[in-house]
């Protein structure tokens, strides 16, 4: 009986595995069959073409919006509104299609313009059309016109509490040197949080790192193959390598980083950036395995989500060469968890 159950379970598992494999094969096929359609036209010329096209249609929408209040015939008004709205949609489509080659500033400016146009249109609709008359036959339009999200109900704490296991990491420490060697362990994530005046040394690589609430700390780390997510850090020095680095609410920190994509900052001030400079025995192999052996130069291509102008953001700068530390050397310890 038990045996029967067990063999049933194994066949089920086997079919499941087969199914999963079939799915992955399908995914791989998608990869192979993809038409090589990457249009590699010169990105500056296409971005100029975009700009002029965008500003032309933006101007056209704006002038049409300005004319609207002068129209008296309400039928005519409706069709005009529909036309303008569709023009805004095309404009949006244009931005979406161009989002791959547009410089980040242009993209954000375009997003803002579209958002503004939509708002003006919505405002005009509510002003010019008495609500009752403006009822398209929309199945779900019977309810109120406003679609603003209702107040965030803060009282939603009622969800069943599940105990979340604590992930590996260093937490709640002061004035300590904390060392961890990830070599030979299963790759996972690592958390560093609530530290004051500590020095953290991480050897080997992890897939993801979370760094929260640090004051006056130094963090030296080997490569992260996914992303580093950081929030609320002050007066710290970081020496890190990762595929992505996302920095939130950081003040007065120095970053010596190597990143495959562009580092981003949000709600930050007083940050300085320099190239990665960590050394330990075997770091070359670790970096290579993580695909981080080459300097991409992205350490200085920082995107500030809070800065909407083309000019340099005041929230970060390049750390003067004269002020940089030379290189940081850390020791490799045999056991995973030693204190220095």
């Amino acid at each position: 009986m038990e045996e029967e159950l067990q063999s049933k379970a194994t066949t089920m598992e086997a079919t499941l595995r087969k199914k999963q494999q079939a799915m992955l094969d399908r995914l791989a096929n998608r990869h192979q069959n993809r038409p090589k359609s990457t249009i590699t036209d010169d990105s500056t010329s296409s971005s100029t073409a975009f700009s002029s096209k965008f500003s032309d249609s933006k101007r056209s929408v704006e002038s049409q919006l300005a004319e609207l209040p002068t129209l008296s015939d309400s039928c005519h008004l409706k069709s005009r509104l529909a036309e303008i709205s569709s023009e805004i949609s095309s404009l949006e489509q244009l931005v979406a299609e161009s989002s791959y080659f547009l410089p980040s500033y242009d993209l954000r400016a375009a997003l803002k313009s579209i958002s503004d146009l939509k708002q003006s249109l919505e405002k005009l609709i509510s002003e010019l059309l008495p609500k009752k008359k403006f009822s398209f036959k929309n199945k779900s339009a019977s309810k109120n016109v406003h679609t603003e999200p209702r107040e965030t109900a803060k009282a939603e704490k009622s969800n069943p509490i599940i105990t979340i296991p604590e992930s590996p990491g260093f937490r709640n420490k002061q004035n300590e040197v904390l060392t961890k060697n990830f070599r030979g362990s299963e790759i996972g994530e690592f958390t560093i949080s609530d530290l004051d005046s500590c020095e953290v040394r991480l050897i080997g690589s992890v897939r993801a790192a979370f760094i929260n609430r640090l004051r006056n700390c130094k963090v030296y780390g080997g490569p992260v193959t996914g992303s580093i997510l950081m929030e609320d850090v002050e007066n710290c020095v970081f020496v890190l390598a990762s595929h992505q680095i996302r920095i939130h609410c950081a003040k007065r920190c120095d970053f010596y980083v190597r990143v495959r994509s562009r580092p981003i900052i949000e709600d930050c001030g007083g940050l300085r950036f320099a190239p990665y400079c960590l050394k330990y025995d075997g770091i070359g192999d670790d970096l290579k395995e993580a695909g981080l052996d080459e300097e991409s130069g992205n350490w200085s291509n920082v995107d500030d989500f809070k800065w909407l102008r083309a000019a340099q953001s005041p929230n970060w700068s390049v750390l003067d060469e004269g002020e940089r530390v030379g290189s940081i050397q850390i020791e490799v310890l045999d056991n995973g968890n030693g204190k220095g």
Binding site: L27, L107, R108, S261, R262
Partner: peptide, 17 residues
């Protein structure tokens, strides 16, 4: 899903389609 290279991806500043 689209079978493209995923080795260098920057955080999305706006949107992609």
């Amino acid at each position: 899903i689209n079978g493209e290279d995923t080795s260098v991806i920057s955080p999305t500043l706006g949107f992609n389609i």
